[in-house]
């Protein structure tokens, strides 16, 4: 009961109260994943619709981590919320989980539309759906852990923007989320593999039959995404600057 209250506090502060008091944010949350989706679908004349919908889902999960980093830094540096929470019975883990949920709630309008689009245009098996959900959960956990870790080190808005740029580049610009990695010329393809999102995108694209990856490549993708997620989660718990 107590922990659920603490999780709910973050959902209220960082999502529900924001959406209630500033309804314009509901529109904003829709724009990021859907705008790129529309562009890719138009340019590809609809051929990349299914992969783009899945890409938009991944983008929404990754954006949650980027958003979390910004939101937490803002709440910590400008309002000292983290100081007040540290001195309360809420632990770093519960605070992170609460904020993670808040990002999901905040993204709910976009997620609902994307899920409807996925049901209409992405044709896959039950296993494919399960794999996609698993990889979405994994990339969400990864981005949340990274966002939380960085936010605890951010001390002002300038650092916050620097972290934002870093995360955006690593997680959304480099990786081929909305299209297959084969669209990237070979020398640059290796750069894409620097981002964990690339591995998640490959798994998801394979799950819907857009890519036909050999089992070994798929296994490597899973190993990388699981290892990176676990490592970041442990780092977020142990190395984040919660109590200085």
């Amino acid at each position: 009961m107590k922990k659920s209250s603490q999780v709910y506090a973050s959902v209220l502060v960082n999502a529900l109260y924001v959406m209630k008091n500033y309804p314009v944010t509901l529109v904003n949350t829709l724009l990021a994943p859907l705008s790129i989706l529309v562009v890719i679908v138009l340019v590809s004349k609809g051929s990349l619709l299914a992969v783009s919908v899945e890409g938009a889902l991944i983008m929404t999960m990754v954006s949650a981590g980027i958003g979390l980093q910004g939101d937490l830094s803002h709440l910590k540096n400008d309002f000292r919320l983290q100081d007040m929470v540290v001195s309360s019975p809420t632990s770093a883990f519960v605070y992170m989980i609460g904020m993670a949920f808040s990002e999901i709630v905040y993204s709910a309008p976009a997620l609902m539309i994307l899920i409807v689009l996925a049901m209409l245009y992405v044709h896959t098996s039950i296993v494919g759906v399960a794999v996609t959900l698993a990889v979405l959960a994994m990339i969400f956990t990864f981005s949340i852990a990274l966002g939380f870790l960085l936010s605890t080190f951010s001390s002002d808005i300038v650092q916050n923007w620097a972290f934002f740029g870093l995360l955006s580049t690593i997680l959304t610009t480099i990786p081929p989320i909305y299209y297959p990695i084969t669209y990237i010329p070979l020398p640059f393809r290796y750069i894409a593999y620097l981002s964990p999102t690339t591995y998640a995108a490959e798994i998801a694209q394979n799950a819907i039959g857009y890519l036909q990856l050999p089992a070994s490549s798929l296994a490597i993708d899973w190993i990388v995404i699981i290892a990176v997620t676990m490592a970041l989660f442990v780092m977020a718990m142990r190395k984040s600057k919660w109590r200085e």
Binding site: S5, Q6, A9, Y17, N21, L81, M84, S88, T90
Partner: peptide, 22 residues
């Protein structure tokens, strides 16, 4: 350096803090 969170009402500010307290 604590500041009231501008997108919350007075009551919402207090309620959210109390939820953090359990």
């Amino acid at each position: 350096e604590a500041r009231a969170i501008p997108w919350l009402t007075s009551k919402q500010s207090i309620v959210s803090y109390l939820l953090y307290r359990g």
